[in-house]
């Protein structure tokens, strides 16, 4: 017994550091898997508060660019609204089309990373504003990512610049589906994999989200084809996609809430259980 005690006292620094190292190792492993990193994330009161203070200061430097961007988006939306009005005068009897199942919530990005292999954004809206896990996040120019963690006032977003992200997307012209991934090399280029060889690939073509998942509506802009590569098995393409978004300077984002998510999830779970 005494020898065990002596051993513990003699090696107390080693045991202490081993213990702390194992804790950090566990936290690291945990953060490698989506949805499990509950304890150490920047969506908490402490770091969220400091980040939003920093953002309050930084905001003044970009007011002009932000205004330009919002004006641009306003103009585009106004144009869409005009064309929508023309249609709606012809056919406004079907009330199901007037209620979109997607709700949009605006938020500000208070912290943004794009230089790591797993990039996370922090935004200043949280569960108080009905933000929940797995909601999609876009900006006025296109796709950004998916909500990963929420606290009362803040939330973190796993951006598409994250090796864990895999988002369904398709060619706008031919509707061929693939998955969007990121190879960590350039924060403005992502990869679209598993595009069938039949698909007509033209450099400069637009890529949009596929709408196969409940997270994003169909047709959110992603980017344009920059180059293509036929895989070794000669059956599918890997495309390099240049994003419309500049992922290195994000300010205002929209969070997409699909009102039908619960219903769809429940239905799918029931069918799974039935098998």
């Amino acid at each position: 017994m005494q020898q065990i005690l002596f051993f513990l006292i003699r090696n107390k620094n080693f045991l202490l550091s081993l213990f702390l190292f194992l804790i950090s190792f566990a936290l690291t492993i945990q953060s490698h898997s989506f949805h499990k990193n509950k304890f150490i994330n920047s969506a908490n009161f402490f770091s969220g508060g400091i980040y939003s203070f920093k953002n309050n200061v930084n905001n003044y430097f970009n007011l002009k660019e932000e205004n330009d961007l919002l004006l641009e988006e306003n103009a585009r939306l106004r144009m869409q609204l005009d064309s929508f009005d023309e249609f709606s005068t012809i056919d406004n009897t079907d009330s199901t089309f007037t209620h979109s199942k997607f709700q949009f919530e605006t938020a500000r990005v208070i912290n943004n990373t794009y230089s790591k292999s797993k990039n996370i954004l922090t935004i200043d809206k949280g569960s108080q504003m009905n933000i929940a896990l797995d909601m999609g996040v876009i900006s006025s120019k296109g796709l950004i990512g998916i909500i990963k963690n929420t606290s009362a006032k803040y939330a973190t977003v796993q951006s598409i610049l994250n090796i864990n992200s895999q988002i369904n997307a398709k060619l706008k012209n031919s509707n061929h589906f693939g998955s969007l991934i990121w190879n960590t090399e350039d924060p403005n280029i992502v990869q679209l994999i598993e595009i069938p060889r039949l698909a007509p690939i033209i450099v400069g073509d637009t890529i949009i989200t596929g709408g196969k998942s409940t997270i994003f509506p169909e047709g959110v802009l992603v980017g344009t084809i920059q180059s293509s590569l036929l895989n070794k098995d000669k059956n599918s393409y890997t495309l390099n996609i240049k994003l419309f978004n500049d992922m290195t300077s994000l300010k205002h984002v929209y969070i997409i809430n699909n009102k039908d998510t619960e219903e769809i999830k429940k239905l799918e779970k029931e069918s799974d259980d039935a098998e």
Partner: peptide
């Protein structure tokens, strides 16, 4: 540092 960087426990380790 990890808390602010969303990096799990890499800096701590």
């Amino acid at each position: 540092i990890d808390l602010f960087g969303d990096s799990g426990g890499v800096h701590a380790a």
